[in-house]
Design a protein around this nucleic acid. Sequence first.
DNA 1: CCAAAAGTGTTCAAAGTACACCCATGA
DNA 2: TCATGGGTGTACTTTGAACACTTTTGG
Lengths: 232, 232
Amino acid sequence: MPGYDPTDFPAVAVTVDLVALTVAADELAVLVVRRGEEPFAGQEALPGGFVQPDEDLLAAAQRELAEETGVGPASAHLEQLASYGTPGRDPRMRVVTVAHLALVADPPAPRAGSDAAAARWAPVAEVSPGLAFDHDTVLRDGVERARAKLEYSSLGASFCAPEFTVAELRRVYEAVWGRRLDPRNFHRKVTGTAGFLEPTGETTTRDGGRPAQLYRRGPAAALHPPLLRTDG
Amino acid sequence: MPGYDPTDFPAVAVTVDLVALTVAADELAVLVVRRGEEPFAGQEALPGGFVQPDEDLLAAAQRELAEETGVGPASAHLEQLASYGTPGRDPRMRVVTVAHLALVADPPAPRAGSDAAAARWAPVAEVSPGLAFDHDTVLRDGVERARAKLEYSSLGASFCAPEFTVAELRRVYEAVWGRRLDPRNFHRKVTGTAGFLEPTGETTTRDGGRPAQLYRRGPAAALHPPLLRTDG
DNA sequence: CCAAAAGTGTTCAAAGTACACCCATGA
DNA sequence: TCATGGGTGTACTTTGAACACTTTTGG
């Protein structure tokens, strides 16, 4: 391994890409931007950009998320997903991208004024085959990660407002997994798991029916046993 | 996002690092190399190196693994782990490393003749606090990933020779998890899960006791329900 | 009153856990 | 013979799954 010098190693650009997911209208949606330039001009792509010289990878992803949606670090879950660096994935030059997964609570209207002209939240199935670069693969990996994480963590609450009902949380699970869940067993499961939910003491009737308890996300990370395999 | 030009984006080097694990003497061991130059000269580090201009990330990791151990792609499981790019993690310049996790069956004597002079398989606890760069973190993440994957896949067999007994496989699990398992329930579990093991029809007495059936790894990926929480 | 949704109780089946027990081998 | 480890059977407990049922709101 020779000494490090800019001429010693290949020219590689490092970017961060975002798989930003939200649940809107009981459907899993992803943030995409319309490309204005070649390559893939006119096609949609995941938002992304260069990592700045003194910027951590996660910080770069946070910056991108804020730029495209206005969502700050406090209102979304953000974690690294995987890196993609196949030669030729960007025809212009060698680009290694570190993809990140963001779970966003409320679908705030994407800011049209920023550098990414036309950003929008689109149902995953609507854009999924058809994204630029290798972003179909990246999106698939992100959705798969999100599905897996709901099963053994309390991350599903990241898709909900700070205070939410069990029914709202259940609709998140149903949207992400694409499967109906038994409301009664779901209720028993999430309220019966220590640390998963924190009751606020207040109730609401916004779902219809009788007043429902409002909860906040609890500190628990584990839900481990397979969470409800059935439908209702 | 401006056009791509080597002067437009920060100079970043991309490397691959390896968390190569094996089970030797009923203990989880990791491949480390002794550094000969600054920074961290004299300290041990995970093996790694630059990604070549037209080389895929996984291919680069395969090359590194072969260079350091002589192990080819067929005899080891290799997957991407995560990327680490905190500014300053390498004092010389900005380096983003894509860490990979390798599970190696037999601990072949590391090749001393290669560019990494002194490579060795060391018990994880022996080197763990004390590695160069941020490699303690990388190693911790790799071990955590390995532990998790054993629970819901048949990857444990990657630590065994092509043909192995249930007892050998159990010792792998015990080494990785650092916990004793009930031999009888373990046997029932792995032989009772469809696709997990493939009997070869032959037996051996190398473990002592009565002749034991030899198995190969089956195609199954899922083991899902929590695999044995108890000790013997 | 009726529909809809929250929340509880009950029952059944499946899976993990503990452990007694037998079998085959080598020393 | 005895110690060692492979392999089977069995009983107990926990958990998921299905579903009947009551309660409380809005229309």
